[in-house]
Design a protein around this nucleic acid. Structure first.
Lengths: 196, 196
DNA sequence: TGGTAAACACACCGGTCGGTATACTCGCAA
DNA sequence: TTGCGAGTATACCGACCGGTGTGTTTACCA
C-alpha cells in the first residue's frame, strides 16, 4: 500500500464487447437517466446486441450496478488525485475535494450520478442503492482520513459535516442553479476545519 | 399581507377529477419515480381515465409540472409553519427549517422530490427544471429573510451557505443513509450564524 | 329550455420496454 | 481436431408507453 487515502477496489476485467457496453451505458445512463434508456439503445451505441448485454451482465439491473461501480471507481480516483497533489494544512486538503468536484462537474454538469440513480431506483433496486450508499460512506471516510493526517482529532462529526457540505454543493450548483455554490462550500469548509 | 416570510402563490382551482388526478400523481411520481409511472396508472389510481388527464393537463409533462408546483406549495407552507412558531434569535429560526425537514422526511423518506425530478427530467423537460430551480431559489430567499428579520446583515453569502447545508442534509439523510445528518446540519448552521 | 363544461367509457395508434430463443461465425487452446 | 467462450444477427414475446378519437352521460346555469 503506497497510500492510505484511497481505498478503492480495482475493476474486474471485461471482455472487449463488455467494455464497449459499459462505456455506452455510462454515457447514456448519466446523460439521459437510467429509466429513460433501454438496453436496446445501449446495445446500438456499443455496436453490439442485446444478447451480448444479457450474456455479460445478466439483466439491466446488473448493467446498472456495473455502471455505478465503475462510476464510483472513477470519481474516487479523480478525488484522490486532486487531494494527493496538495500538501498543506488539513483545511487546504479538505478544500481540494471541492476543486476536484469543480473539474468533475465540467464533464458531468448534470449533477451527482449517484443521487440521480438513487432518485430513480431507490424503490426498485436494492443492489443499486447499496452502491450509492457505499459511495457516500466512502466520502465521509475520506474526510476523516484527511483530518487525521492533518493532526485534527475528530470522532466523526466534523468529517460527516464536511461530506454534508460537499453534497450540498453538488445539489446547489446543479439542480439549484447557483453559480456560487462551490465557493460557498469552500468557505464553509474552511470555517469548520479552522474553527476546530 | 399578514406575513413576509412566505411569499408563495396559492394554487389554481381544480375540477374534482383533476384534484384526484393530481393527488394520485403526487403519490405515484414521488414513490416510484416520474419516468417509471405511466399516465394510465395515474388514471387508474385516480379513478378516472387517461382522456380526462389529457383534457385537464394537456400532456404528461403538464401533469408533472402541476405535480411539482403543488409539491413546492406544500413544502413551502410546511416550512413556513414551523418557522413561524419560533421567535428567538435568528439561529433558532434558521435551525427550525431543519426541524421542518425532519418532520417532512417522516412522510417523504425517499428524499427531495425536486432533486429526484431534476435527476429524471433535466435533459427532457425545461418546464420541470424551472420549477425545481425556483424552489431552490425560494429556500435561499427564505434564509435571507430570516437573517434580515434577526438583524443579521448579509449580502447573500450566508443565506446561500445555509441553503447549501440544508440540501446536503437531505442528501446525506436519504441517499447517504446517515442518521446523524439532520443534527450535523443543525450544528453547522448554528456555527455559521453565530460565528457572524 | 337549451347550452356548455366536465367527466365518463372505450377502442385504437405506432412505438418501445425488458427479456428470451435459435443459429451461425470466429479464434484459441487442449 | 475438437470443443468452448465470445460475439453477431435476427426474430420473437407479452406488456406497456404517451397520446388521440368518438361518442355518451351528468350537472349546472343563463
Amino acid at each position: 500500500m503506497t497510500t492510505t487515502i484511497s481505498g478503492t477496489a480495482d475493476e474486474p476485467t471485461l471482455t472487449p464487447a463488455a467494455r464497449r457496453i459499459l462505456d455506452a451505458a455510462t454515457d447514456l445512463f448519466y446523460s439521459r437517466g437510467i429509466n429513460s434508456v433501454g438496453v436496446e439503445l445501449v446495445a446500438e451505441q456499443a455496436g453490439t446486441t442485446k444478447k451480448t448485454i444479457y450474456d455479460r451482465f445478466g439483466s439491466k439491473e446488473g448493467l446498472v450496478v456495473a455502471y455505478l461501480e465503475a462510476r464510483a471507481r472513477r470519481w474516487q480516483a479523480h478525488v484522490t488525485d486532486h487531494v494527493e497533489q496538495v500538501d498543506g494544512p488539513a483545511s487546504d486538503r479538505v478544500v481540494a475535494v471541492i476543486d476536484a468536484l469543480e473539474s468533475w462537474l465540467e464533464m458531468a454538469d448534470r449533477g451527482c450520478g449517484f443521487v440521480a440513480a438513487y432518485a430513480e431506483l431507490s424503490t426498485s433496486s436494492e443492489r443499486a442503492t447499496a452502491v450509492v450508499r457505499a459511495e457516500k460512506e466512502w466520502m465521509r471516510g475520506l474526510f476523516g482520513r484527511l483530518l487525521a493526517q492533518g493532526g485534527i482529532e475528530d470522532d466523526g462529526l466534523l468529517a460527516r459535516q464536511l461530506a454534508l457540505v460537499q453534497e450540498g454543493a453538488v445539489v446547489e450548483s446543479t439542480a439549484g442553479g447557483s453559480s456560487y455554490a462551490l465557493d460557498d462550500a469552500r468557505a464553509v469548509m474552511r470555517a469548520l476545519v479552522e474553527g476546530r
